[in-house]
């Protein structure tokens, strides 16, 4: 199996590479690239994302043909893709970080700042929080409800269709922390930084 981590020059993806390399060892051929042809011929894609919604979208758009290739992969060919953090957020139609920015529009909804209740909750939401599983998800196989995952973010994805939500976490309100729709997966938390339980999420994705 060939899995590609999309390297689109946005933020630090070393940890994503390290953890996927660890889990993929001997089982999966892992590539880290923005090469359109490599992506097309992959079986699965990982879309990481660090920094702001705007900067990530801009970086994707800078690579000619990348957004269309990803769309074909996910929407037309229905092959599995995992978005992590801003990688997930970009599934939305629109994001409001820095300034209003159009997203990939794969799952309709928006990305807005977490309501911290006038400073009652510190932002960014940094650290370990429990996930509450909302529906059966392939990437949560053998993962217990209320497992701890590592989060770092100030913005949240609010999908229009709530049935895509596979887990939430509690921080000032119920925040969407993972989504699943057919072949499309996303986590707001960082499985690559979430210890053994996070590696299990990665393993589940690679075993799909």
């Amino acid at each position: 199996m060939n899995v590609t981590i999309v390297d689109y020059q946005s933020g630090n993806i070393s940890s994503v590479i390290n953890s996927f390399t660890e889990v993929a060892k001997g089982k999966v051929n892992l590539d880290v690239t923005s090469d359109i042809n490599k992506i097309k011929s992959s079986d699965k894609i990982v879309l990481p994302g660090q920094g702001s919604f705007k900067s990530c979208v801009n970086s994707l758009n800078k690579i000619s043909g990348l957004v269309d290739t990803l769309k074909d992969f996910v929407i037309t060919n229905k092959k599995p893709l995992l978005g992590i953090c801003v990688g997930l957020q970009m599934f939305a139609d629109i994001g409001y970080e820095e300034s209003e920015t159009k997203g990939l529009g794969w799952i309709s909804g928006k990305v807005s700042k977490i309501d911290n209740q006038k400073g009652k909750f510190k932002l960014p939401h940094i650290g370990w929080n429990e996930i509450e599983i909302q529906k059966k998800s392939k990437i949560f196989k053998d993962i217990k409800n209320k497992s701890h995952m590592y989060f770092v973010h100030s913005y949240e994805f609010i999908p229009d269709d709530k049935s895509v939500i596979s887990a939430t976490t509690n921080y000032s309100s119920k925040i969407v922390c993972s989504v699943e729709r057919d072949n499309l997966f996303g986590t707001q938390f960082h499985p690559e930084k979430s210890d053994k339980i996070g590696l299990k999420v990665i393993d589940n994705f690679l075993r799909l």
Partner: peptide, 8 residues
């Protein structure tokens, strides 16, 4: 270290 520790 980053190759062996999967916490921040």
């Amino acid at each position: 270290t980053a190759k062996e520790c999967f916490v921040p």
